[in-house]
Design a protein around this nucleic acid. Sequence first.
RNA 1: UGGGGCGUCGACAAGUGGUAAGUCAGGAGACUUUGGAUCUCCCAUUCGGAGGUUCGAAUCCUCCCGCCCCAGCCA
Length: 560
Amino acid sequence: MNNTVPTPTDFIREMIREDIRSSRYGGRVHTRFPPEPNGYLHIGHAKSIVLNFSIAEEFGGLCNLRFDDTNPTKEEARYVEAIKEDVRWLGFDWQERLYFASDYFEQMYQYAIELIKKGKAYVCDLSPEEIRRYRGTLTEPGRESPYRNRSVQENLELFERMRAGEFPDGSRTLRAKIDMRSGNINMRDPVMYRIIRAEHHRTGKKWCIYPTYDFAHPISDAIEGITHSLCTLEFEDHRPLYDWFLRELGLHHPRQIEFARLNISHTVLSKRKLKELVDGGYVSGWDDPRMPTIAGMRRRGYTPKAIRDFCRRIGVSKRDNLVDVSLLEYYIRTDLNKTAMRVMGVLRPLRVVIVNYPEDRVEEMDAINNPEDPSMGTRKVPFSRELYIERDDFREEPPEKFYRLAPGREVRLRYAYFIRCVDYVKDDDGNIVEVHCTYDPETRGGNAPDGRKVKATLHWVSARHAIKAEARLYDHLFLTPDPEASEDFKDFINPHSLIVLDSCMVEPSLKDARPGDRYQFERLGYFCVDKDSTPERPVFNRIVTLRDTWAKIEKSQKKG
RNA sequence: UGGGGCGUCGACAAGUGGUAAGUCAGGAGACUUUGGAUCUCCCAUUCGGAGGUUCGAAUCCUCCCGCCCCAGCCA
């Protein structure tokens, strides 16, 4: 796969290398990405996807896509489609290995019977409330269920009747018989099966009992011949249970390895909180371009490559982490710098009249499409007497280090002429509404024959040729780096995370822009045509700004 | 005060007893028809702390401190 980040070395790859050396799985490597189809994927999942698929590729192995669909009350078919699309878009291919835990329900049932026969599982009649009380606490051991010592025969009959639908939801469970005194609460006779009468998105009404994650996951891994089962840190406590099931059942035994989940500054990365943002109307939906979801980032204009490179660069470890968003932004800039077509667009237009330029004249200026890639060629941009420039590029009273246009100042219009400000017009409120300039005909194309230099080059657009457009400027969703650390993460929502500008003026070549197309608006940032865009009203999402040295200077000036 | 993990630069993260990689961020400069890109340089005498072992410790030992996860018939 095309990545600019070198192959990582991390503790997981090291362990796998060791397993290959010792021929633990006959030198085989087989991983899996096991999402639950209960919501949208986000960049935290991307970390896991990239990890699992890359490792398989690096070691000549395979990676399965498996839906962990063991809880019909939370899962929906539409999520499996969305997830498949996201994984594919990220650039990964599971080939014919698309699996569902629900495909294994019958086998899991048989394995459960096997455990019952071995005296390692029993049907328990305790209510959820009672189970909790019997479980004990973090510091006190649990007590054994009064149903723990039923006969194998009775357990077999009861379990069969559970499956047959003879008992109400929640009235009984099948539990593993392990150790109610274990310091690890997961080993205190965990539930393997519960009764749930809900329509499953794949198996429909076939089942009314469903295996829990703890029972289903190791068996699914075993059935698929997985060698390395990678998951996040919170499952570390479950590993003894994972191992217990596989050992008791004598099945193929993959190695579970846990790594730290991803956190990114100025956003949240938990399904619950993301859902709260959607449901609370703080964003427009799961694919709002401000969301760290794969769908949101795709709409924003992020490229799969940028996300992959980011995921490789952050590495894999077991430490809690909070990765700076600027690293993500670095990768999208780096990718787009090489590939994005340059174009001129004015976000906040200020009218400029070239007083010594003929009214009816129009010139076609040659502009380079991408200075990083000459093969992208050039294009013509119309120039005329009346133009728009960026409001930020003119100052009546220029501060220190402001190089742009100001009364009496000369600057360059990119690919056009040097112009000098000779006058400006204000409205009754004192707002500058128009700037008058003269141009130097000798500087056509942007160079002065006399070797004269200017300190600034401005982007511009010809007023009568410009296309009016909407721009959506996005900023971080949260004002604090770590909103999750606060009492209520919503306290720090950035009220200006979206600014809509509806009177932008862009160069005419953009009439052919189609949703999904990405451009660099010179001096401003990278933009992506939104799906809301129409030929009459183009809409551009700002993916990320360009690095802005002047903004930095201005900020430090304000601080004093 | 049960069990399981983790502590190396502002943020990620290498390092596996031989004298602290790299990346982002930040700073300085060069170059520049994007204050973009590119290039150069700077940015941990120190690895949570204290002892100890050793010629030599981020790496080994001991004790301490801090942070995270677990008491769903969620995953």
